[in-house]
């Protein structure tokens, strides 16, 4: 699904990531952890082409990201669901339209029933017409997850999705991600919350990648 081959990333004159090699197999669940500023967000951005590697090669669905045209990057992003810590919505559109947006930009008809089932799955069926600025932190994260999966993507990339929400809501979001993984989705979730990683132990067979000193290492045994 995603392969890094000796990837480096320079930022502001220094090397943030150096010689990273990793492979996310289809259907796998990986946590990405490390201290703040270690490069978790950068590594996730490299995965979907939002940042360009300064060295090495990144393959997404078998295609080299470096040689890809803008339209091809857009096409591949439709196969990826992205959840950010600071969920990005179009604030002038109601929640249901925001969630359905990936369908619209892909030129697909939105199945209203499926949309509302999805909103119910993330516990937001009563907030369908609310505008994003009126949502709580937890609601925004769940809405971002709903938007990330509406196109049934192959990969879910979640960047600190629990960063701004309480523990109960974090567990709820984790359950949604593990459910998606059970459906066959590949999940990469960046978090610095080790308790959350431990809590996932009973739900999913996941691996933990740790970024430290610009390199990525497998953090000990599987959970």
């Amino acid at each position: 699904m995603i392969e890094f081959h000796d990837v480096s990333l320079g930022y502001a004159g220094k090397e943030l990531l150096s010689g990273v090699t990793l492979k996310l197999a289809p259907g796998s669940f990986h946590f990405l952890t490390g201290p703040s500023g270690a490069g978790k967000t950068s590594l996730i951005k490299l995965c979907y082409g939002d940042l360009a590697a300064s060295a090495g090669r990144i393959e997404l669905f078998g295609e080299d990201l470096a040689n890809m045209a803008r339209d091809d990057i857009a096409r591949l992003r439709r196969r990826i669901g992205i959840v950010h810590q600071d969920c990005q919505f179009l604030d002038h559109l109601p929640l249901d339209e925001n969630v359905a947006l990936p369908m619209r930009v892909a030129g697909l008809e939105t199945d209203e029933q499926a949309l509302y089932e999805l909103l119910a799955w993330v516990g937001l069926s009563g907030r369908a017409t609310a505008l994003p600025p009126s949502l709580s932190g937890g609601e925004r994260q769940r809405a971002a997850l709903a938007r990330a999966v509406i196109n049934s993507p192959d990969i879910i990339l979640a960047d600190e999705p629990t960063g701004n929400i309480d523990w109960d809501m974090s567990l709820r979001l984790l359950r949604l991600l593990t459910e998606l993984n059970r459906m066959g989705k590949t999940v990469l979730m960046a978090t610095h919350d080790l308790n959350l990683i431990r809590a996932a132990k009973s739900q999913v067979s996941a691996r933990v990648l740790r970024i430290q000193g610009g390199t990525v290492q497998l953090a000990g045994a599987d959970l």
């Binding site: 857009a74 096409r75 947006l101 930009v105």
Partner: peptide, 16 residues
Amino acid sequence: GQVVRTLRLIGARDSY
């Protein structure tokens, strides 16, 4: 800018 970044993030082509 935020709208444009969000649209690119979810796979919108430049033409869209």
